[in-house]
C-alpha cells in the first residue's frame, strides 16, 4: 500500500464519517455508530497496510502524523457520542478529520516532510487529539454558560449539562496533560519541567477543578460559577496560543 491509494480510502472514509455525523444530528444512533465505525475500519486498514509496506510505524513524517489525527478524531468522537450522545460531537470530529485528510490530499509534499526525531513518538497524535477534544468540550460548556448569562435566567437543567460537559472536558484535559508527561519522560528524560506551556496547562486544569468543586458547594451561586467558567476559558486560550506572546515563555520548547 502506498500514498497513491490514499485518496480512495480517505474519500470513502470521510463520506462514511459524514453520514455518521448526519445520522447523529437526526438522532439515528445506529446509523451514527455504523457509518462512523465503517469509516474508521477503512481508514485503519489503510494505515495498517501502509505500516506493513514501509516496515515501520507511520510516525515519522508530518503526513503520517496527520494520518493518525484523521483516524483518532472520529474514534474519540464515537466514544464521547456513546457516553453523552451530543448530537454535534461527530460533526466536530468529522470536520476536523476531513481538514487533516484534505491537507494530506492537497499537500502531498508533507508526506515526506521533516519531523524532528523528538516528535516521532506514538504519544504525539494521542496527546494532540485529546487536547482538541478538551478544547471542544470546554468551548461547548462556555457557550452554554454565555447563553445562561445573556438570557439572565439560570435554567437548572442547562446548568447541569454544563457541569457534565466540564467533567467530560476535564477528563480530556487530564489525559492530555498526563500523556504529555509520559511522552516528555521518553523524549526529554523528565515528565514535568515547568515549561511555560506546562505551567499554563496546570493553571487551566486547576481552574476547571475549582469550577467543579465550587459547583458542588450547597451555598454556591450559579451566576458566579458561570462567570468563573468564562475566566477558565480565557486561561485555556492563554495555554493554547496566548503564551506565544508572553515574554516569560520565550524559551519554551512548545512555542512555534
Amino acid at each position: 500500500m502506498t500514498w497513491s491509494l490514499f485518496p480512495y480510502f480517505a474519500i470513502a472514509s470521510v463520506l462514511l464519517w459524514a453520514f455518521g455525523a448526519v445520522s447523529a444530528w437526526r438522532n439515528k444512533s445506529r446509523g451514527a455508530f455504523g457509518f462512523t465505525a465503517g469509516g474508521l475500519l477503512l481508514f485503519f486498514i489503510f494505515i495498517l497496510a501502509l505500516w506493513i509496506t514501509i516496515q515501520h510505524p507511520p510516525l515519522r513524517t508530518l503526513g503520517e502524523t496527520r494520518l493518525w489525527y484523521s483516524a483518532l478524531l472520529p474514534a474519540v468522537g464515537l466514544i464521547v457520542y456513546a457516553r453523552w450522545h451530543y448530537r454535534w460531537i461527530l460533526s466536530f470530529s468529522t470536520v476536523l478529520a476531513a481538514v487533516f485528510v484534505c491537507v494530506n490530499l492537497f499537500k502531498p509534499e508533507i508526506h515526506t516532510q521533516t519531523l524532528m526525531p523528538a516528535l516521532q513518538s506514538p504519544w504525539f497524535a494521542p496527546h494532540v487529539i485529546v487536547y482538541m477534544f478538551a478544547y471542544a468540550m470546554m468551548s461547548a460548556a462556555t457557550l452554554m454558560a454565555v447563553y445562561q448569562l445573556v438570557s439572565r435566567q439560570r435554567e437548572h437543567g442547562l446548568s447541569i449539562s454544563i457541569d457534565d460537559t466540564v467533567r467530560a472536558g476535564l477528563t480530556f484535559l487530564t489525559f492530555g496533560m498526563l500523556f504529555g508527561a509520559l511522552w516528555a519522560k521518553e523524549a526529554w528524560g523528565h515528565y514535568w519541567s515547568w515549561d511555560p506551556k506546562e505551567t499554563w496547562a496546570a493553571i487551566t486544569w486547576l481552574g476547571y477543578l475549582i469550577y467543579l468543586h465550587y459547583r458542588q458547594m450547597p451555598t454556591h451561586r450559579a451566576l458566579y460559577a458561570h462567570l468563573f467558567l468564562l475566566v477558565c476559558f480565557c486561561l485555556l486560550q492563554m495555554c493554547w496560543w496566548g503564551i506565544n506572546y508572553l515574554p516569560a515563555a520565550t524559551g519554551s520548547v512548545h512555542t512555534y
Binding site: W84, H85, R87, I160, D164
Partner: peptide, 13 residues
Amino acid sequence: YSVRGVSEEEIRR
C-alpha cells in the same frame, strides 16, 4: 456523577 445520571441529550433522545 451527573446529578441526573443522564445528559440533556439523552433525555431528549
